[in-house]
Design a protein around this nucleic acid. Sequence first.
DNA 1: GACTGACATGCAACTTTGTTGCAAAAAGTT
DNA 2: AACTTTTTGCAACAAAGTTGCATGTCAGTC
Lengths: 138, 138
Amino acid sequence: MEAQIDEILKKNQLSVTGSRKRILELFLMSNGALAHGDIEKKTGEKFDRVTVYRTLQTFLEKGIIHSIPTSDNSVLYALCKDDCTEGHHHDNHVHFICNKCGKTICLADVTVPEIKIPGGFLPQDYQMVVTGLCAECR
Amino acid sequence: MEAQIDEILKKNQLSVTGSRKRILELFLMSNGALAHGDIEKKTGEKFDRVTVYRTLQTFLEKGIIHSIPTSDNSVLYALCKDDCTEGHHHDNHVHFICNKCGKTICLADVTVPEIKIPGGFLPQDYQMVVTGLCAECR
DNA sequence: GACTGACATGCAACTTTGTTGCAAAAAGTT
DNA sequence: AACTTTTTGCAACAAAGTTGCATGTCAGTC
């Protein structure tokens, strides 16, 4: 785990610091998505609010994590797959949000279908969010 | 227009007030989606911030408008089609967000494809957002 | 059209969420 | 170990959203 975290940071030319290690660890442990608030709560008093914001920002820019749009407009982040590179994401799987427990799960095996868009529009990215009940809550 | 607005409000058992009429009018005029901020700006000094929040909340509950998830996590609202009823929305069209001008457009003709979800999950609602360049910006 | 109960609004105060500038601290480099 | 660059924490701020309560407005009834 330690080694994996270091590797990810170094691969992205980021210095290895306490907050980055801790936040990355949180993402690796939870196989769902995390809201900013979750991260703040789980790191407790350890890091400043601002640091969490900036760390997430950095991870986003480097393509380590991606953000997920939700219907209630909270901000969610999840780890990217390996083939995400800086700038452009290949994060074409569907996200599932449970209406009961609120957890967000990446359905890594379900790819977003490419749909037909009316002429005139130039689509660049497709995102799909399914809400409902997860296996534990139904 | 006047008559249409009154009808919508009465159909939903809402009293016809100045703010509701004005905000509903804004939605009817713009055929795209509106952010809370847009509405506040366009109504000017006329209504209190709180009133705008509460009016949108009410419209959401009654199924007059629906919220749209965006990639940058701002809150967007758009008018629902007629077959939206209180509680449950049948808002199964795709939303397009332009990366340049930021406008959100409802692609009313493009329906969200029903995809296969792994067993265990109980899907209730599908939402799809496409980002890219709109006709004017490309 | 005036009366009345129910609902909507405005105000104030507050919480939560996100941002910016800058000095101190820690990381990476030689 | 000394130096440079990056990251962090603090403080102050800005924006976004919420809550309680007194006042005002609406819809229905007489």
